[in-house]
């Protein structure tokens, strides 16, 4: 019985320490040291309006925009309220048909040759904001045509938006699709 009392009091004390004080201390330090990241890395456009988060991708299907990775979030693509992947098994017929359909829409937009897997296979979070530079460059002719811009100019915007490996060796080079599209619409701060 002595142990039962210890158990209950321990739980209360550790709930206070680990469940209240610890997260509060982290929140406090985070707000002072890294306020932008702690809030969610939101992008403010040139006119001071919210334009989404740098870390949360958005859906695009218009030829004027670069298309991001397929998303299997609940409800509609890139729904931040239902993060998650397709969880499709690699031999499931329905899934393979879906991949085939996506390949077809890239073919119709004028892409020839092999298509990078990330363009037709859904991400794990369904919110992946990035594409590899190769997958973006593949879409340059379409975007340039739809916007009446020279491919050179669009390629330049892509190069500008490309991030290198973190610390020079971590991860892969990548392009933030939402930021690139905002840039093309002239909505990013200069």
């Amino acid at each position: 019985m002595k142990d039962l009392k210890s158990a209950m009091v321990m739980l209360i004390i550790f709930t206070v320490i680990c469940g209240c004080i610890y997260p509060a201390v982290v929140t406090g330090f985070a707000r002072v040291l890294f306020p932008d990241q702690a809030r969610g890395s939101f992008i403010t456009d040139g006119r001071g309006r919210d334009a989404g988060s740098r870390l949360i991708g958005q859906p695009f299907s218009d030829p004027r925009y670069f298309w991001p990775r397929p998303s299997a979030t609940a409800g509609f693509p890139y729904n931040p309220m239902g993060s998650g992947g397709s969880n499709a098994g690699p031999t499931t017929p329905e899934y393979l048909k879906g991949v085939g359909d996506r390949v077809k829409s890239y073919r119709e937009s004028g892409v020839t040759g092999p298509i990078p897997a990330e363009l037709v296979q859904a991400s794990a979070s369904g919110l992946d904001p990035h594409l590899s530079p190769e997958a973006v460059l593949l879409q340059v002719p379409r975007v340039a045509r739809a916007r009446n811009l020279s491919e050179e100019m669009v390629t330049k915007a892509v190069a500008h938006a490309t991030e290198v490996r973190q610390l020079g060796f971590l991860g892969e080079p990548r392009v933030n699709v939402l930021e690139l599209n905002l840039e093309l619409d002239g909505r990013l701060k200069r």
């Binding site: 390949v103 073919r107 990330e118 296979q121 594409l131 990548r174």
Partner: peptide
């Protein structure tokens, strides 16, 4: 289906 590269289904770039 004409796709190249590693299996990227359910992975983050």
């Amino acid at each position: 289906l004409g796709v190249s590269g590693a299996n990227m289904e359910g992975k983050e770039l």
